[in-house]
Amino acid sequence: MFEARLLQGGLLKKVLDSIKDIITEGNFDCSPNGLSLQAMDSSHVSLIDILLESEGFEHYRCDRNIPMGLNITNLVKMIKCAGSEDIVTIKCEDKPDNVTFLFESKDNDKISDFEMKTMTIDDEHLLVPDQTYTAVVKMPSAEFQRLCRDMAAIGDTVNISVTKEGVRFSTTGDMGTANITVRPNPSGDQKEEERTEVQITEPVSAGFALRYLNSFTKATPLSPTVTLGMVPNLPIVVEYKIADMGHVRYYLAPKIED
């Protein structure tokens, strides 16, 4: 059986908010290491990879690997019924037809349980190579969100080019062009999460669909910083770390000159 108790139930809401616009169903894999999800969007252009490590839960028991296929839209509806301060317990049997969500209010004066039907999802599991990134950019997540929103107001595709001087985001649309350069500022007085840091072994540049990048920024409430990893001619990774718990990562295939 599987049973996991999470003290910060609000975290589950944030995780679901970060994926609900991209996927409609997914297999949550329960394993002794934690709860994970890998799923592609319907156009198979991007890949979501979530990990919630077992150590991040107050109580975690998983005897064997259990795939828990869930409709994300319905899951959002159920998790919305939890208060943001509630403690959430997720429970299911080894071959589950249903999964149970138990919500306990912080003061222990209200207990709710919801049972949701599982579904069989037959999706291909992709193999993400263990990559050394040519360029890694760490920046405030709110700034990245703003930047993607601004770029999407002008064009559909953004060219991201990273040099040791900084990261240049460029787009072109019917009304004109836009360029935003973010420079590394590691020596200032900023707190760590306010800094922009760039690590590169060689300059890298590629084009990406802004519609997807904008969807990824729905994960902004999960982390004060976001990390972009790039390798020439390979998908970009956009990573939001979840403190003491794991991550939400998005991989997006580049646009390639025909």
Binding site: M40, S43, A209, Y251, L252, A253, P254, K255, I256
Partner: peptide, 14 residues
């Protein structure tokens, strides 16, 4: 024009 590749093109099944 720029062509959008699929993610499977890069990450073959595991």
């Amino acid at each position: 024009p720029m062509q959008q590749r699929s993610i499977e093109f890069f990450f073959r099944g595991g």
